[in-house]
Amino acid sequence: MIEILSVTGPASVQDLGRFDQVRFGVGTSGAMDDVALRAGNILLGNDENAAGIEIPMTPFKLRFGRDTAFALTGADVEAEIAGRTIPPWWRTQARAGDVLTLKAMPRGARSYLTVSGGIDVPIVLGSRSTQFRGEFGGLHGRPLQVGDILPCASWSVTIRDLGIEPAEITLARSSAAADETTVRVVIAGEYDGFDAATQQLFWQSSWKITPQSNRYGYRLQGPEVKPTVPIEKRSHGIVPGVIQIPPNGQPIIQMRDAQTSGGYPKIATVISADLWRVGQARLGSRLRFEQTSYADALAAETEKSAYLDRIRASVRLVEECLT
């Protein structure tokens, strides 16, 4: 069991998401950086879908109620437990009573704490992820608060410290500038409703991530991108990654807690292989879009899976070598 001692911003319990309830209006929720959550679970020998804690802001502090193996992945955090510093993308052992402190987040936007066996909140509609809008899932369907007690399904295993290479390093893509993230997108239904010059503006701009960006969506700021004639669609299903253009011409990327449908014109969709990069892009930093084909988007998905496969194989191998 884990007790939350200090929390800043909306930290929440998330697994990979709730994927088959869209016909009831239920969005996916789930970790904004699915690669980091999976990697943490792989480090601990968990099911990759085991629930962890998504921590978007520091300081964050919790106490372990019993001996527990845990991992920190995702954003780079300056973390400490019982006087020891924990490197990024690392698993280690907590003793009963140990306090884990996340002091600062010098890189990235969300840290993931995974524990051996996973955070054991009830499965609601097929997932442990927090559904903020529906107020269910996670811990009572809400962000974590000081004093919350989270049950862990941990078994008493003792593991040795081990780190893995952060996805941002292995899956690095050349970026034009520091503090700028480039993500690949596939064009969407209304792309042709924008004239060539406006399309160019969309591709060539470095979009600023405004403070109104969160798990629902990333609201971007830049030149006005407006369709040739205003487009008002009949409401239709949308998924995380869809980039809508509301009438003010400022793009919104739908994220994990997005509505399941919308009617604003869609210019493109961030491919699912790159959505974690958006989830780790900081408020105030910049985003750039790069057009890709459906086939290349699938290849990117394969590359992401290959990274996770390599981690899985490496952890197993090192485990065998060192025991």
Binding site: V185, V186, I187, A188, G189, R234, H236, G237, I238, V239, P240, G241, V242, K266, T269, V270, I271, S272, A273, Y294, A297, L298, E301
Partner: peptide, 14 residues
Amino acid sequence: PRISLLGTSALLFE
């Protein structure tokens, strides 16, 4: 009908 992609995770039929 119009058929368009929503990335690689979904497809829209209008």
